[in-house]
Simulated assay, not measured.
Amino acid sequence: MSLFNKMLASVGIGSAKVDTKLESEIVSPGGELRGIVEIQGGNVEQRIEDIYLSLHTTYVKETDDKKYTVNGLIDRFQLAESLILKANEKKVIPFSFLLPADVPLTIGKTKVWISTGLDIKGAVDPTDKDYLRVVPNQLMDSVFQSLSGLGFRLREAECEQAPHRLRRRLPFIQEFEFVPISGPFRGRLDELEITFFPNSNGDLEVLMQVDRKVRGLGSLFSEALNMDEANIRFVLNQGDIPSMQGKLHSLIQNYS
């Protein structure tokens, strides 16, 4: 019977199971994620070589003028190495770690999840999947609130393959596309795109693309040559929060 159970466990029947329970699924970039991993032994004793959590999202990749969605690994965290799990034994492993500062926000089409895996030699590896709600940190939220105050509405947010000039640790970037529906830039801009590049010291580097509205024949030629777009790079810190709206207004004004 034991040999039969081992054969079943090798194909995932009666094998160990894993379940991750998060203290909270709401997190922010650079914030702490806490929880426990529950492992329930199956019908036979099994050796678990590795227990890990991996952080994932999806992003749009383009090849030969065709776009498709691929899985992107953001980070991987090892919880434990090599242990023996007896039949029907239950183990609980607490965890706590900081999310990377460049984890994308779960806005628009973007989803982020934690995948928990057990590496069991010679058997199907059990996994568990838990979605996170990644909300803006204080500095990012200040940017969003200020743009809203200037009359911009978020139209789209998506993770896309990063061009080589913008590639950092990850192969993708998250772009936020805004349109002016009221305020001083309505009728002057077509759209505004921003991308965040968090720094390790807590500062926030921002790439902003200002797309000016076409006016007259000269502007039509400029648009055809992409000369109607202006790219601005600047760095924000916590000290900018009280005057964020005025700072963004001045930057956009200079290029609109």
Rank of each mutant, 00 (worst) to 15 (best):
M1S: 14
S2H: 13
F4K: 12
N5Q: 11
N5A: 08
M7L: 12
M7Y: 05
A9I: 10
V11I: 15
G12C: 09
G14N: 04
G14R: 02
K17L: 14
V18R: 04
K21Q: 13
E23M: 10
E23Q: 13
S24C: 10
S24V: 10
S24K: 11
I26C: 09
G30V: 08
G30F: 05
E32P: 01
I39Y: 02
V44T: 15
E45Y: 06
Q46Y: 02
D50W: 12
Y52A: 09
L55W: 00
T58A: 10
Y59V: 02
V60F: 02
V60A: 06
K61M: 04
E62L: 00
D65A: 06
K67A: 09
K67N: 05
N71M: 12
G72V: 01
L79D: 01
S82D: 09
I84Q: 13
N88K: 14
K90L: 03
K90S: 08
K91N: 04
P94A: 06
L98Q: 11
A101G: 05
D102V: 07
P104C: 04
P104I: 04
T106F: 05
G108S: 03
K109R: 11
K111P: 00
K111A: 08
I114S: 00
I114T: 02
S115A: 11
T116R: 00
G117N: 08
G117C: 04
D119A: 11
I120H: 01
I120V: 14
K121C: 00
P126L: 07
T127G: 03
D128S: 02
D130K: 07
R133P: 00
V134R: 01
N137I: 04
Q138S: 15
Q138A: 15
L139K: 07
D141P: 03
F144Y: 13
F144S: 09
F144K: 05
L147Q: 04
S148I: 11
L150K: 08
G151D: 08
L154K: 05
R155Y: 15
R155L: 15
A162M: 03
P163G: 08
H164E: 14
R165E: 14
R167G: 02
F176E: 01
F176D: 00
S182N: 12
P184G: 08
P184I: 06
F185M: 05
G187F: 01
R188H: 14
L189W: 03
L189S: 05
E191C: 04
L192R: 03
L192H: 03
L192I: 09
E193C: 06
E193Y: 07
I194M: 10
I194T: 05
S200Q: 13
S200G: 05
G202W: 04
L207A: 10
L207R: 15
R212N: 07
R215K: 15
G216P: 03
L220S: 08
L220K: 12
L220A: 08
E223P: 00
A230K: 13
I232S: 05
F234L: 09
Q238D: 13
D240A: 12
D240F: 06
S243I: 12
S243E: 15
M244G: 06
M244A: 10
H249Y: 15
H249C: 06
L251R: 08
L251H: 02
N254R: 15
N254G: 15
